[in-house]
Design a protein around this nucleic acid. Structure first.
Lengths: 341, 341
DNA sequence: CTGAAAGCGCTAACAC
DNA sequence: GTGTTAGCGCTTTCAG
C-alpha cells in the first residue's frame, strides 16, 4: 500500500505538499503539482481514508439504523439515503437492529461519534435515551420520518405529515361514496403509525361524526406486515360483512388485505375498496394495483442526510425539525365507487 | 469525547494499561483492572474505532457492493450479509452502484483496503479489472453468488449452482407433463443468468432433444424485472399460444409473467404454469404463490463474509471458490399438471 | 510556494 | 504487572 510519504519521496517534496496538491489546499506551484500528480499516478497511490478520518477528526461515513429489512420500505429508504450520502461524499453504514433494541444500543454505542459522526435512525426500536446518549458522545442523530409532529422526540428529525396522509386516504374513500369503512393499523394503539389513524378520524368526523363511533369496532391493530393485514381483514369482514372499504395504515399490510379479499371471493374494488399509505414500489405491482397515499420517501432521505451533515457542522443545543413535503394521493385500481348501500 | 489518555490519567495508570484492560490483552492486576473499569464507566469512555483501525492497520468494516436495490433480491442478501458481519464484529458499508460501473469503480477505489479491508461484490456491473486492482491495493474481494463455475472469475467467490436450479425447475415442469415450455431469461444471452438457461436445456435434452430445438424460438431475453417478464410473456404467448408452461430464470420477472397471464385471462396454473428461480420473499406473496427453485441466500451471504475474513487473515495468491448448498424446489401454487395437449 | 513538526487516539513491542 | 516508546497515515499550523 503506497502512502503519502512514499509519494512525497518519489516526487521529491514533503508529505504536506502532496496533501495540499491532493486536496487543493494551500498554494502549490504548477510544476510541483504536475510532478506530484505524476508520482501519484505512477505509484497508484490512494489516500487512506481511515488515517484521514483520524487526522481530520471526522469519519466519512454516516450510519443508518433500521429495524428490519423485511419491511420493504426500509430498503427503499436506504437506497435513497445511500444516494444522498454518496452525493455528499459520505459512505453509508447500514445497521440492522433485527428488531432488537439491544442490538440498536450496541450499534449506537460503538459507532456513534467514532466510526461515523452522523446517525440516521429509521425506526424506534431504539430508546430515545440511547439516541440522546449518542448525541452526548458527539454524534449527530436525526430521526427519519417522524410521524408525530405534536410530540417532538427530543432529537432532531425529519417529519412527514402522516396525519394528512390518513386524511387524504380517507377523503378519497369518502369521495367514492364509502361510508362503511374498516381500518387496519400496522402498529399497537398509540404506536408509530397512530397519526395515520388520527387522520382517518379527522376526515370521518368532518363528514359525519357517527362514523367515528362505529369505527372503533371496525379497527384492527396488527403487525405491520402482509400476514397482519390478511388476518385483520378476515376478522374485520367476519364481524362486519357490510364494509365496502378498508383503510390500511401502510401498504405492506394492505397487500395482505388484497389477498384476504381474493380468498373470500371478493372483487377489489367492486366488492371492496382498499387503500394503503406510503406507496412502496410493490404497491403498483399488486393485483389490482394498490391505490395509496404516497409519501416523499426520497426527499425525506435526502433531507435526513442533509440535516445530519448540517448538525455536524453546526451543532446546536435544541433539536431541529425539518418538514418534508405533503403526502399525495396515488389512484390506482384497488379503489372504486361504493356499490353496496 | 473522552480518550484513552484521559481514562488512564483518571485511573492513575498509563494508556497501555487501559488498552490492555479493555482488550483483555497482556496481564493486568485485578485491582488496577477494577480501577480502570471504574474510570471508563465514570467518564463514559468509548474507544474511537477510527483510531483503533489506523493503529491496527485494519478497519472493522466490510463493504457490500450491489447494483440496485430495485432488484428485491439485493436487500435480502444485504440483510443476511449484515447479520453475518455483525456476528463477527464487523460493520457493513452498503455501496450502491446504481447500475453504473463508474460508480462501482469509484467506490472500490476509495474504500477498498482503506475504509474496509474486505469487499463483497454482488453484481457484475463492476469490471473484473477493477476487482483485481482492488486486490492489488490490499483489499480482499469476494464475488457473491457466482453463477458460472466453469468460468472462474479470477477472484475469489461463492458459487451457487444455478445450472442445477435451472434443471430442477425444468424437471418439475416436465414431471407435471409439460412439453410446450417457453423460457424467459432475465439477462442478455450469455449474461449473468445464462447458467440457469443451460440447466433448462440440460433437462429438456434428457427427455427429448427435439424440445431444445423448439425452445430457441420460445425464449426471450429481457430486463431482470417485472416489466421485462410481463412484456416477454405477451410476446411469447402471441407467438406460441399453445405454451402450457413458462420457465423464468428469476422470480422477479416471474411476477410479471403472473400479471401478464392474468391480463390475458389465463388462469395460473390451469392454463399456464409458471416457475421462477431464487425464492425471494415476494414469491410467496404473489397470487398465486409462485413455485420456484430456492437458492441458499443466507448461507451464501454468511459464506461470503466468512471467506472474505479468511482471505484477510490468510492472503493467498490463487482465488478461492467456495460452493454453497444445492438449490431446492419450492412447490407453491403457480404450477400444475399440463391440461392442454 | 514549500518544508518541518506536531498530533489525531489507539496499539504493540519491549523494557522495567 | 505496568510503563515507555514508537509508530499507523494523514492533516495542519506555522516557519522559511
Amino acid at each position: 500500500m503506497t502512502t503519502l510519504n512514499e509519494v512525497a519521496r518519489h516526487a521529491g517534496v514533503t508529505p504536506a505538499t502532496v496533501s495540499n496538491v491532493l486536496r487543493n489546499r494551500g498554494k502549490v506551484g504548477a510544476a510541483t503539482r504536475e510532478r506530484v500528480l505524476a508520482s501519484v499516478a505512477a505509484l497508484g497511490y490512494r489516500p487512506n481514508l481511515t488515517a484521514r478520518a483520524l487526522a481530520e477528526g471526522r469519519a466519512p461515513t454516516l450510519a443508518l439504523m433500521v429495524s428490519s429489512i423485511a419491511n420493504p420500505f426500509y430498503p427503499e429508504f436506504a437506497l435513497e439515503a445511500e444516494r444522498a450520502a454518496r452525493k455528499r461524499g459520505r459512505f453509508l453504514l447500514v445497521c440492522n437492529t433485527d428488531n432488537d433494541s439491544n442490538v440498536g444500543s450496541a450499534y449506537l454505542d460503538q459507532i456513534a461519534g467514532t466510526l461515523s459522526q452522523g446517525v440516521l435512525v429509521m425506526n424506534a426500536d431504539l430508546h430515545f435515551d440511547d439516541l440522546i446518549k449518542a448525541q452526548g458522545h458527539g454524534a449527530s442523530v436525526v430521526l427519519c420520518m417522524w410521524e408525530k409532529p405534536d410530540q417532538p422526540p427530543g432529537v432532531s428529525c425529519i417529519a412527514v405529515d402522516f396525519r394528512q396522509a390518513g386524511r387524504l386516504a380517507t377523503q378519497h374513500l369518502l369521495d367514492l361514496g364509502h361510508r362503511r369503512i374498516g381500518a387496519i393499523v400496522g402498529c399497537q394503539p398509540g404506536g408509530v403509525q397512530a397519526m395515520r389513524y388520527v387522520g382517518l378520524v379527522d376526515a370521518l368526523e368532518q363528514v359525519d361524526p357517527t362514523l367515528t363511533a362505529k369505527l372503533e369496532h371496525e379497527t384492527r391493530y396488527v403487525e405491520d406486515n402482509v400476514e397482519g393485514g390478511y388476518a385483520a381483514t378476515m376478522s374485520l369482514l367476519d364481524a362486519s360483512p357490510d364494509l365496502t372499504a378498508i383503510f390500511v395504515s401502510n401498504d405492506f399490510p394492505a397487500l395482505g388485505v388484497l389477498h384476504a379479499a381474493a380468498d373470500r371471493g371478493l372483487r377489489v374494488p367492486d366488492d371492496l375498496s382498499v387503500i394503503g399509505i406510503t406507496d412502496i414500489h410493490w404497491a403498483r405491482l399488486a393485483r389490482p394495483a394498490l391505490t395509496t397515499v404516497a409519501v416523499p420517501t426520497a426527499q425525506a432521505a435526502e433531507m435526513a442526510v442533509e440535516l445530519v451533515l448540517d448538525l455536524i457542522h453546526n451543532p446546536r443545543k435544541e433539536p431541529t425539525t425539518w418538514i418534508a413535503d405533503e403526502p399525495w394521493l396515488v389512484e390506482r385500481k384497488s379503489t372504486g365507487p361504493a356499490l353496496k348501500t
